[in-house]
Design a binder for these strands. Structure first.
Length: 470
RNA sequence: GCGCCCUUCGUCUAUCGGUUAGGACAGCAGCCUUUCACGUUGCAGAGGCGGGUUCGAUUCCCGCAGGGCGCGCCA
């Protein structure tokens, strides 16, 4: 038995766009596995595509991960900065005869593929420079370096999710390691970086499964140890089609502004492709405790906002009032809404118990808390206006008098209103609905007596007065 | 075209050959109730198709169909 190695996982996004939900899930799984095993979780930015990589995208990824609470260990590795080392490995392969220079031009290669396609043959590099030694003049083409890949036999990937996946070597071609300008390709860079970073487990999207075979060939050529692979099925949009901007491919930071809590996102993402019996609400602590590679599913999953909403509502209800109030205020700020006054901040906190019960997102909570943010005179919406019939307005006027001596707590107010309704020979609802309409301008709100307690005596009576008929 | 992967309620999933195929979200109905929500009770809802293997297949094997991914001097 070999000595137990510390497990090292990594998340390696390319900064050509924001961090989307699929990438976030991949990051989560890597993070969870590292935490579960007491290992290390590293972050590597694969910025070797100079044309498409942007600093904005790097920031978006870093911020997204920070928001989700997926903290990486050690320094962030920027792949482009390691190009010299990647080149060094290619040179070594070249020196050992495990790679070779190919002088084929783009045009030549394109023609080759077109021919193969027309002939119904698999499209792959035909190895035309594999055994050719350069005698005579050097073609005026900056050569690429290709791996001299095995042409017979099989390359086998033992995948922790997909099981054993076998590729016949004759379907894999001699792919490029170094471009004509001497820069390394992704295939080379990944392998070298993973080795140098000591990565033991590669958890990534399914779309890399075939790449694994090529990467394994490089690793074998270098005589390095093979990492454990775990390829996650891809995520699809709500309609089952590929994720696109229209559904679900939002940047992870947008979920933040949509009012979702990171713990809810983590729980939701975790259940997309991983399960633990019938467990649905899984705290991050439990997730770390339970997470394993064996329970990752093999079939693709769709994102479902309804379920995310449900989970988010659960975590909101479970959250501390003060934390939620802080988050709400921060979101208000990000939305460009006016800053809260001390008074409003206190009201928001006081109303939080009843507010958080009836919202699935912070955005919804803000909407439900509008009675705190709005100023008199309130403009009732259509339904509220309907509830404020002439009879109701007259009743509100009488209620004002009845409340004159009432101590201003939710309980006392409720008792007084109930007594008033009874005296009026009315049902409580007949009094409460117009009251709600007058206080909030809506027909739906937290319990009216809570609203009144939050608003305070003066403001409550003033709002009622605004709608009451003499 | 070639290769690889996948296939249980609308959605996410459980099931390690024998279950009335379970749970969750969503939906519908009831209860609770000052509205909404929460909570709670109930209803409806699934093994793609065809062959095998087996006393017995959702589960194992093969084929087909459907879906996905890959096949760049992108990552």
């Amino acid at each position: 038995m070999s000595a137990p190695r510390q497990i090292v996982t990594r998340f390696a996004p390319s900064p050509t766009g924001y961090l989307h939900i699929g990438g976030a899930r991949t990051a989560l799984f890597n993070w969870l596995y590292a935490r579960h095993t007491g290992g290390i979780f590293r972050l590597r930015i694969e910025d070797t595509d100079r044309a498409r990589s942007t600093p904005e995208a790097i920031d978006a990824i870093l911020e997204g991960m920070a928001w989700l609470g997926l903290h990486h260990d050690g320094e962030v590795v920027y792949q482009f900065a390691r190009a010299a080392r990647h080149r060094e490995v290619a040179e070594e392969l070249l020196a050992r005869g495990l790679a070779y220079r190919c002088y084929a031009t783009h045009e030549e290669l394109e023609a080759m593929r077109a021919e193969q396609k027309a002939a119904g043959k698999p499209m792959r590099y035909d190895g035309r420079w594999r055994d050719r030694t350069l005698d005579g003049p050097v073609p005026n083409v900056p050569p690429v370096v290709r791996l001299k890949a095995p042409q017979t036999g099989e390359t086998v990937i033992e995948d922790a999710v997909q099981g054993q996946v076998v590729f016949r070597n004759d379907v894999l071609d001699d792919f490029v390691l170094l471009r004509g300008d001497g820069t390394p390709t992704y295939m080379l860079s990944v392998v070298v970086d993973d080795f140098d970073m000591g990565v033991t487990h590669i958890i990534r999207g399914d779309d890399h499964l075939t790449n694994s075979a090529r990467q394994r060939q490089i690793i074998d050529a270098m005589g390095w140890p093979q990492p454990v692979y775990a390829h996650l099925p891809l995520l699809h949009g709500e309609d089952g089609a590929k994720l696109s901007k229209r559904h679900g491919a939002l940047g992870i930071h947008e979920y933040r502004n949509l009012g979702y809590l990171p713990e809810a996102m983590r729980n939701y993402l975790l259940r997309l492709g991983w399960s633990h019996g019938d467990s649905e609400t899984i705290s991050t602590e439990q997730a770390i405790d339970w997470f394993n590679l064996e329970s990752i599913g093999r079939s693709p999953a769709r994102v479902d906002f309804k379920k995310l909403n449900n989970l988010n509502g659960f975590y909101m209800r479970a959250a501390a009032d003060s934390d939620l109030a802080t988050e709400t205020e921060a979101l208000l700020g990000r939305l460009g809404r006016p800053a809260l006054t001390e008074h409003q901040r206190a009201q928001l906190l006081a109303a939080m118990p009843s507010l958080k019960d009836r919202a699935k997102t912070l955005i919804e909570l803000i909407d439900n808390a509008s009675f705190i943010f709005e100023t008199r005179p309130l403009v009732p919406d259509d339904k509220a206006a309907k509830a404020l019939s002439p009879e109701a307005r007259a009743r509100l006027a009488r209620l004002t008098t009845a409340l004159a001596e009432t101590p201003w707590t939710a309980g006392e107010i409720e008792a007084a209103v109930r007594a008033f309704a009874e005296a009026e020979g009315a049902k409580l609802g007949d009094v409460a609905q117009p009251l709600r309409a007058a206080l909030t301008g809506r027909t739906v709100s937290p319990p009216v007596f809570d609203v009144m307690a939050t608003l305070g005596r003066a403001e409550s009576l003033a709002r009622i007065g605004d709608q009451a008929a003499a």
